[in-house]
Design a protein around this nucleic acid. Structure first.
Length: 845
RNA sequence: GCCCGGGUGGCGGAAUGGCAGACGCGAAGGACUCAAAAUCCUUUGUUCGCAAGAACGUGUGGGUUCGACUCCCACCCCGGGCACCA
């Protein structure tokens, strides 16, 4: 593992310091010296900060609010992960600097404790989720206390507390009232292991995002939110957001907007009149459409009125295709299959030709209209299909150059397209659509947010179904007769403590067997009715928590709160990129909806104008996981090295947005650095020395550290601090003022040791974390002498030190006089001399 | 396949047109010590050379430039996102 650190925590009475003393010191002070023992000072300051409310801003009166928000953890498993600590530390450093710059920094923390993740863990260790939540809460907060973040503890929240989920349920009710929540029987993702449905976003490569089990399709009646209604705004707003690019790209891909046309094809040969509407992004290729393909789910296939001569064969194919899950259906390189619908044909509206209609599972029922026009000459999939079944191909686009090879996917000029021949394909899209009375239309990859879960550990969905009203066709929403939201005065619908909380697998929640829970009176007619027994997705809990932090004491104003105006939109949001299309999409959707309802008023409806995704901490080149046994427990390192050392080590590994590989050996370097800081602090226990300031080095460091923190380049900021300490140690004597500036620069990274030196060694009475951030003097950034690089034909042949006041002429003269340069020139005459101000002279021969 | 990152010593990384390898780890040698640990000092890209110094060197191949890790073109490899989405 790592070397034993017997010299720190394990020796409480060790008290000489001699062994630690280095060249910097004053011998006579030795008996007063103490060793750097993080265990002694860290918990002391954590308690003191709490008592002094160092990190509690005035939520109602702060003059310069800075909401420093970070994604809250979901407690489960063995406790805080080193990855959590990495994320929190990186966000905290930014916030600490802002606080020193005079901002009222609000850095809240809480627990996203509802959900499958926490419930599964409780089941695994055989504890009831309610009881496990209490334990996790205690353990997590204890660990979170130890990492030394400037958390505003007073405002902490837990999503599983009734005073919290009261408002999660309220949010559901609002969705319902505004027509954004609906219940529908549909083919949904079902995780056989977690025994619940999942949203599209929770399925990764056909597997459950939580447990990795292959997801299957099930026909179930489920609750969804109409996030698709917001697809355009979710996409368009991305342009205005200052977010990590990779997250924006992921959201763009996920929303997947494409512009195309819907075109109607009349059907011939059927006894009843029928049309098939297709969606295409290439209406310009309509003249090349030689057949149509319906998805197995297409409504015409189930329509018995529709005269398909080989109906049995077609239905059999469709049924088989539907039984396959997405993964099987789209397995890469899979051969195309399909069946022709005999006895019916479609009429290409551009050519008036009769073309065959097929059913094939390469067309998805859930996208577009569930039907396509196939243009085998200009689409790879259609090409493959046409080749296999011997269907005709017709090229209708030519590019300028080599276009002999089909399929040709690109754009170009039209051919064999009647009066459109020669037209540019881009222009032809609109023209041909118009010509056949089609309609330009957007299509989205995004699906509605499936919100219900057949599990116990979540907020019960606050809906009631009344059989009486349903029969009478009454209800709160059109086409949803019988359904009523729980009246707001009756919220929250409490999650009962049931002994049998395990998922049933029958498509309903364990709450469905709790009569006391589900029996309710109809809010409309008073008849005996039945409560919804599913709970909502965990991601609904976390879709509004940033609002809740602003008022944990007064639940009645949790969402519509005057503080919201002061603190939101958040100044900075930090979290993992793995939530690109989960949390980060949902949270935006909910904010947009709240904006439309007049509850929020953020510009563009966006709560987080600035978001930064941090990197991933891996271990020895591999992702940490319990099965690999390479999970780093931060507690152990904090116990052995201190939180300051671990914080700095994690930040020193690599740029914060990149992540890093955790290697035990590296921790020692930071530990040495902090010991040297400590020792230098001890050296100042005596009155100040009146030594000269480190000047340019100091001021360059102030600038560098400030810039690096702003850019989240903590690794290079730490490097700059090391260089400054090295420089100070080389001096005969160090000015106390310099060292104090150094301490302030170090404070965001190592909050405990800097506070200890500041207050205990230097006798200050207020926290270093409330000190003003150092300002550099631009005049002091440059050294008195500069190093001029001398090149001949671009190769370095020497360097010389010159006063920084030097002129171009002086530089060139000095360069030509240099021995190394003369040797390299070998008597040749310079053709050209390039001078880069105060940096370099390059002599070209 | 498309879209984002990225490829630099033994290792993590630094430098975004101007001394490649900052800072740290590791390693080697030395000081202190009975000894070890800790600490401090020195060295540490590769090759040739006693040295002064020289040549080579940032995934590969070209190009632009006085000068390229950095910019341009083509390609290879690694990580991530999307993917039969018409």
């Amino acid at each position: 593992m790592f070397p034993p650190k017997s010299d720190i925590a394990a020796m409480p009475d060790f008290k000489d310091g001699i062994a630690n003393w280095n060249s910097f010191g004053i011998g006579s002070m030795m008996e007063n010296m103490s060793k750097y023992r993080p265990a002694d000072i860290e918990s002391k300051w954590q308690e003191k900060w709490l008592k002094e409310s160092v990190y509690e801003p005035d939520l109602d009166g702060a003059a310069r609010p800075f909401y420093n928000l970070m994604m809250f953890p979901y407690p489960s498993a063995e406790g805080l992960h080193v990855g959590n600590m990495y994320a929190f530390t990186g966000a905290d450093i930014y916030g600490r600097k802002k606080r020193m710059e005079g901002f009222d920094v609000f850095e809240p923390i809480g627990l996203d404790g509802f959900g499958i993740h926490s419930e599964n863990y409780a089941m695994k260790i055989g504890v009831h989720p309610v009881d496990q939540a209490k334990r996790s809460e205690e353990h997590f907060y204890e660990q979170l206390q130890m990492i030394g973040n400037g958390f505003a503890w007073n405002e902490r929240l837990e999503t599983y507390k009734p005073e919290y989920y009261h408002w999660t349920q309220w949010l559901f009710v609002q969705m319902w009232k505004h027509g954004l929540a609906y219940r529908k029987r549909q083919s949904v993702n079902w995780c056989p292991k977690d025994q619940t449905v999942l949203s599209d976003e929770q399925v990764e490569n056909g597997k459950c995002e939580r447990c990795g089990t292959v997801v299957v399709k099930k026909e179930l009646e489920q609750w969804s939110f109409r996030i698709t209604k917001y697809a355009d705004r979710l996409l368009d707003n991305l342009e205005k957001l200052d977010w990590s690019e990779r997250v924006k790209v992921a959201q763009r891909n996920w929303i997947g907007r494409s512009e195309g046309a819907e075109i109607r094809f009349e059907v011939a040969g059927s006894n009843a009149p029928a049309t098939i509407t297709v969606f295409t992004t290439r209406p310009d290729t309509l003249f090349g459409a030689t057949y149509l393909v319906l998805a197995p789910e297409h409504e015409l296939i189930a329509d018995r009125q529709f005269a398909i001569a080989n109906r049995d064969e077609v239905e059999k194919y469709a049924a088989e295709a539907k039984s396959k899950n997405n993964e099987e259906r789209s397995e890469e390189g899979r051969e195309k299959t399909g069946v022709e619908l005999k006895g019916v044909t479609a009429i290409n509206p551009a050519t008036n030709e009769e073309i065959p209609i097929w059913v094939a599972d390469y067309v998805l029922g859930s996208y577009g209209t569930g039907a396509i026009m196939a243009v085998p000459a200009h689409d790879e999939r259609d090409f493959e299909f046409a080749k296999k079944f011997g269907l005709p191909m017709r090229q209708v686009i030519v590019s300028g150059g080599d276009d002999a090879v089909l399929p040709f996917i690109g754009t170009g000029a039209l051919m064999d397209s009647g009066k459109f021949d020669g037209m540019d394909s881009e222009a032809a899209k609109k023209e041909i659509t118009k010509f056949v009375h089609g309609e330009m239309k957007m299509q989205y990859r995004l699906r509605d947010w499936l919100i219900s879960r057949q599990r116990y550990w979540g907020p019960p969905i606050p809906m009631i179904f009344c059989e009486q009203c349903a029969k009478a066709g009454k209800g709160e929403q059109p086409e949803m007769s019988g359904w009523y939201a729980v009246p707001e005065k009756d919220l929250p619908v409490l999650l009962p403590y049931v002994e049998n909380f395990r998922p049933t697998g029958s498509g309903v929640s364990p709450l469905a067997s709790d009569k006391d829970f589900y029996e309710a009176a109809c809010p409309a007619c008073g008849a005996s009715a039945r409560r919804e027994t599913d709970v909502s997705d965990t991601f609904l809990d976390s879709a509004w928590y940033y609002l809740r932090y602003l008022d944990p004491k007064n639940a009645s104003a949790a969402v519509n709160d005057p503080r919201v105006k002061r603190w939101l939109p958040a100044a900075l949001y930090t979290g993992g990129a793995e939530h690109s299309v989960l949390h980060l999409l949902y949270v935006r959707f909910v904010a947009l909806a709240l904006t439309d309802w007049g509850i929020l008023a953020f510009p563009d409806g966006e709560p987080f104008p600035k978001f930064r995704a941090h990197g991933l901490i891996i271990k020895d080149g591999a992702k940490m996981s319990k099965s690999k046994g390479n999970v780093i427990n931060p507690d152990e390192y904090i116990r052995n090295f201190g939180a300051d050392t671990l914080r700095m080590y994690l930040m020193f590994l690599a740029p914060f947005e990149q992540g890093g590989d955790f290697r035990d050996a590296g921790v020692l370097g930071i530990e040495r650095f902090l010991k040297r800081v400590w020792n230098m602090g001890e050296g100042f226990a005596a009155p100040g020395t009146g030594a000269r300031s480190a000047g340019a080095l100091l001021h360059r460091t102030i600038k560098k550290v400030a810039d690096d923190i702003d850019n989240l380049h903590y690794n290079t900021a730490i490097s700059a601090l090391m260089i400054l300490l090295n420089g100070l140690e080389e001096q005969q004597a160090v000015a106390r003022e310099d060292f104090e500036i150094f301490l302030k620069l170090l404070a965001p990274f190592a909050p405990h040791i800097t506070e200890e030196i500041w207050r205990e060694m230097f006798g200050r009475t207020t926290s270093i974390h409330r000190e003003p951030w150092p300002i550099y003097d631009p005049k002091l950034l440059t050294e008195e002498t500069i190093t001029l690089v001398l090149q001949v034909n671009g190769k370095v042949r020497g360097t010389i030190s010159l006063p920084s006041t030097l002129t171009e002429e002086e530089a060139k003269t000095a360069a030509l006089a240099d021995e190394g340069v003369k040797r390299a020139l070998g008597g040749a005459t310079p053709k050209k001399i390039i001078y880069v101000e105060k940096k370099l002279v390059n002599i070209v021969v």
